[in-house]
Computed example of a mutant assay.
Amino acid sequence: MTEVDRLRAVCLALPEVTEKVSHGEPTWFVRRTFVSLADHHHDDRLAFWCAAPPGVQEELVAAEPERFFRPPYVGGRGWLGVYLDVEVDWTEIVEIVADAYRCVAPKKLVALVP
């Protein structure tokens, strides 16, 4: 299973998530975008961008810039960039994606996510 397939499975396991192509890349929605694959800049890096709770982007980028980054366009709104072409901790990715979902999903759906 590729990293993209694994990311897709993590996103689609959450309540009422849909996948559509946006800006040429797979993107996952729960009413609004919460995770987007970030391969369209063709910089030879595979990553995704996601919504993040306040302060998380700064904390993770400062602590591990080889794994996390401030994405263009949405980084100013606190979104987090996560590289998938490094050693990936999938337990952590599941938590990051769940946090992104909680940032965007309606409260009734957030209540369904442990």
Rank of each mutant, 00 (worst) to 15 (best):
V104D: 00
D39L: 06
G81L: 05
G24M: 00
K20N: 11
E87N: 11
D89P: 08
R67I: 05
A52N: 05
K108M: 10
Y73I: 08
G24H: 01
R70M: 11
L12E: 09
R102A: 12
E16K: 15
A111F: 02
S22D: 00
V56Y: 05
V97K: 01
V97I: 06
A38C: 04
V30Y: 01
E19F: 07
E64H: 15
R70K: 15
F69R: 01
C103V: 11
W90R: 09
W49T: 13
H40Q: 12
W28S: 03
L60S: 05
L46I: 14
P15C: 03
V4I: 15
C103E: 14
L46R: 11
G81A: 10
F48Y: 12
P15T: 02
S22Y: 04
E25Y: 00
Q57D: 08
G78Y: 06
V88D: 07
V10Q: 06
V21Q: 04
P114A: 10
P54T: 11
A47G: 13
V97R: 00
W79K: 01
G78F: 04
E3P: 02
S22V: 01
L37C: 01
W79E: 04
D39S: 15
P106Q: 07
W90E: 09
R70P: 11
A13G: 15
L37T: 00
L112H: 04
E59N: 13
V94P: 00
R102E: 06
E66Y: 08
V35I: 04
L109V: 06
G76P: 08
E3G: 12
V86T: 14
P54Q: 11
R31G: 07
V61P: 09
G81S: 07
H40I: 03
W90D: 10
W49I: 12
E64G: 06
